[in-house]
Every structure is written in C-alpha cells, then in structure tokens.
Amino acid sequence: MKQLGSLLWAEIIKEHRHSFHSKMIYFSLLVWPVINFVTAYYSFAPFRMGGDSPLARFISYEQLPLYLLTGYLGYIFYWCLVQSSWQMSFERQAGTMEMIFISPVNRLAFLYGRSLSSLIEGVWLFFCFVLLALFFVDGIRLSGWWAPPLAFLILLVSAIVWGGFLCVLFLFSRDASFLYTVLDEPMLIFSGVRLPPMAFPVWAKVISFCFPLTYALQLIRELLMERASLQTMLPSMGLLAAVLLVLVTATVVLLRQAEKHMKKTGNMVMY
C-alpha cells in the first residue's frame, strides 16, 4: 500500500511537471470547453424558445444554460480522462506499461490512481468556471446542502472508473487515436450533454445508456436542478452502480488477458 502510495505520488508529480507548466491544459481544459459550451448554447437559437416551446417537455427554458453547464462539466470530467489515457498510449514506448507489470502494486489500483491524478490536474479549471457561472445562472434547485458534494462525488467516481477502462483500451490497441474519435464525440451527442436522451428514439437511447456519463448526468441534474429526494434517485443510482460494475469487471478481465498475452508474445498490442 505504501509502495502504491509512493508510485502514485510520483505519477502525480510527473504529470504535474509534464503538463501543468505547458499551456496545453489551459486550452484543452478551459478555453475549448468554454467556447464549445457557448457554441452549444447558441446552437439552440434557431429553434422556438419560450414557455410554450416543445423543449419545455424536457427542460424548462430558464434552465437551459444550467442544463448545458452541468452537461459540459460532466463531459469535461470524462473527456479529460479520454485525453489523458490517449496520451498514455504515446508513453507506451517509454515503458509505462512495463512499469505497471514489473512493480508489485495492484494493477487496478495503479490505473485508477492514474485516472484520479490526471482528473484532479485536469478539471479544476473548468470546475472553477462552472462554479463562477452558476452564480449568474437561474434555475438552481438543490436537493439539499449535501447535493453539490454528492454530485461531485458521483462525477468523480464514475469518471475514474471510465478512465481506468479507457487506459486499458488505449494501452492495448494499435491505433489509439481511432478509439479517441469514436469514443469522444458520441458522448457529446448521446450522453445528454446538449440534448436530453429522453427525447431520443429507442435506437439512440440504447447507445445513450452504454455510456456511464448518461447516468451520472441524469443524477447530477436531479440533484442540482430538480430538488429530487434521495429515495427517488435510488433506481438511477442503482443503474449507475451496475454500469460501473460492468466496466470494472471488463477492465480487470482485459488487464488479465493483456498480461497473459504479453508474457506469451512479449507484445502489448492486442488489437
């Protein structure tokens, strides 16, 4: 455990030195999301707004900015991990993978630890932006004082599990940037970042509910915008937990397979 701690600490420090000083994160994790958020908001301009807009069936008109803000906040949590695991695949040659397999640490703990460290590094900027923006936006209806911390926790945990899963995927695939394109933008469309998945036709709903972000966003909006009680949220929480469990299992299985594969062939690439 102590060893894991020091390894993680080293990883956090390295990540910090590596990317904090560069201007990269200010752009990828603040400037772009903010521009994208504003663009998304204006993308609704061509439609009929107001109280009698068909939109009101899903979101009340005043809550649209808040809806998009929470959506982009959730998205940035997840996207940050897509980006960091994508970069990890570049590091593969540098031997990061061997490091995991050589060290006696629990592999899973390492992956999740890495996700956590890059997440904390990555999201605080946009997080501050959202906190600031919340002051200027109408329509906040908290379930209670505990709602924001709980929402944060939900995002954090689900994002980390997602990140661990991505790390494994990215590490063992040959063309990681391909996965990046396939995994990044669908989340934006289907997970309810900009549009309510409830409005979608069935086939699109099926895709929506493959992404844990869909469940996480639903919960967060219930907590922050709908004053939902814990009891009413229990079913959605159960669903999210189930999806996360599936992801963790998949991560473990993939990791085992990969290690076996590597010991046999000396090659990390599985697909």
């Binding site: 439609f47 807009s53 068909p54 939109l55 309510p196 979608f200």
Partner: peptide
Amino acid sequence: FAYHYVFAGQ
C-alpha cells in the same frame, strides 16, 4: 435529434 425529437420541428 434537436429538430425532430426535442423541438418537434418548431
């Protein structure tokens, strides 16, 4: 999606 399902063509 936005046109058909969310805004019902309005």
